[in-house]
Design a protein around this nucleic acid. Sequence first.
DNA 1: GCGTGAAATTTATTATAACAATTTGCAGCG
DNA 2: CGCTGCAAATTGTTATAATAAATTTCACGC
Lengths: 255, 255
Amino acid sequence: MSRKRSDQIAEGLRQRILSGELPPGARLENEATLTARLETSRWTLREALKSLETQGLVRVRSGPGGGASITEVSAATANELLWNFCFSRDLSVPDIYALRKLLEPALARQVTPLLDERTLAQLAATADRCCSYRHEGRGVSEREDELNFHNLLAAVSPNPLLRFLVEFLNGLLLKVVAAQHLDPALAGVDLNYHGHDYHLELIEAFRERNAERAGRLMYEHMEAGERYMAEVTALATSRAAARSATHDSEESQCP
Amino acid sequence: MSRKRSDQIAEGLRQRILSGELPPGARLENEATLTARLETSRWTLREALKSLETQGLVRVRSGPGGGASITEVSAATANELLWNFCFSRDLSVPDIYALRKLLEPALARQVTPLLDERTLAQLAATADRCCSYRHEGRGVSEREDELNFHNLLAAVSPNPLLRFLVEFLNGLLLKVVAAQHLDPALAGVDLNYHGHDYHLELIEAFRERNAERAGRLMYEHMEAGERYMAEVTALATSRAAARSATHDSEESQCP
DNA sequence: GCGTGAAATTTATTATAACAATTTGCAGCG
DNA sequence: CGCTGCAAATTGTTATAATAAATTTCACGC
């Protein structure tokens, strides 16, 4: 029971959208008509529309024929809103890998029979691009290409929710790593090479339509990634400890 | 690049929240001060705050010492926003079970060593309540108790995201079933009895701290649930087809 | 037939004003 | 000391008005 009038209006419209009465593409009337019909003021109505717009359920445009129109919630919108939820839950990297170890292998098995030649070529290109970094500087862009490989796979899944969750977890990993200052560049360069090999082997498994092998390889890939991140974390925390010990040397000398 | 001033303000505040500069509990200044500081009007500011409120990032209260204060995004809020995304993606029941088959067994394994006596008692109570329905009318409340068992387990998980996703999937199943008019009561009463037995066996496995058995039982439970729902779906669609055939008999007689 | 630009439509923003509703905190009363 | 109720602070809602910005449509010229 929302006390606020604007919330009541927004919730009412939301229910009409979720019930299918207002399908995507439908246009709401203009502000003046709506304020009259809902017996409210222009500002209360605008607050309600802003709420729906934030939820990604409507889009408001200016101009003739403009106004609020119903839209499908985009994956990008859902992604951001779910990130809002996650950021304050101090998710650990192992928490994320616990889920990736469940979803990514299942995804690999599911898409093995579905991959067409074009997607396989894209996967190979991304894997090669990853490899090329081996000889140059490594950093965020390499990590993004790593996840790009997995996002390409996710896009093939016929399960919309699996697709979304895998992509979300991939983005989440980047964000959590950034938030905890676990830059993989901190660690030794030779630690990350497994990743490329797994990608190349995965493409092999895909090409021979061996779902079982693809799933197994993906699980091993996730385990290797988790181990790698654990090493990076250990390195980062030990260095942080060393730094703070040096900085606090004058205060912390008396036990 | 949001063209709208209110979106710019909302996004600016959101970034300050996500960066940790504005931690949960922090209070923003009142409307008058903020409009002055941000050099905007009261209405543009209020639209920005409404957006943040919809995202669950702030809470706005009246009264002295009121105003906008930063809050953690609740699981309930994230749940609703993610449901907005899912509802238009015509998720099938098998899509949902594909994920439940992955997450629920992992959850069962994870929580087996963590369950205390109190939670075990609650689980047993819920399972018993489910059994009691066997002799009475069956319906939505039974289904809710079914999911209640799983939600009790989810609450024990130390992984916040796994916890959230399992609870979300459970609610999602209810909503999708409702949206597709797949009321299990349509099917024969004897179809659903497996559920209770699995719950009782699961409690056994938990008590003997046998994570492997718990995971295996949970997977079988999910498979049984999926099969059950497939039967209900088949029944519902065949009945619907029969109904429409009867109704269209006069038109569809000429081939 | 095509492109360009002007016009019309609609939302976006700002300004001002007033009153209602809610909540806090204090003061007064029992 | 505790409870009640009033006062004050702050947001919530409505009203009116004016200008800016965006976008579509249409007409005009080429």
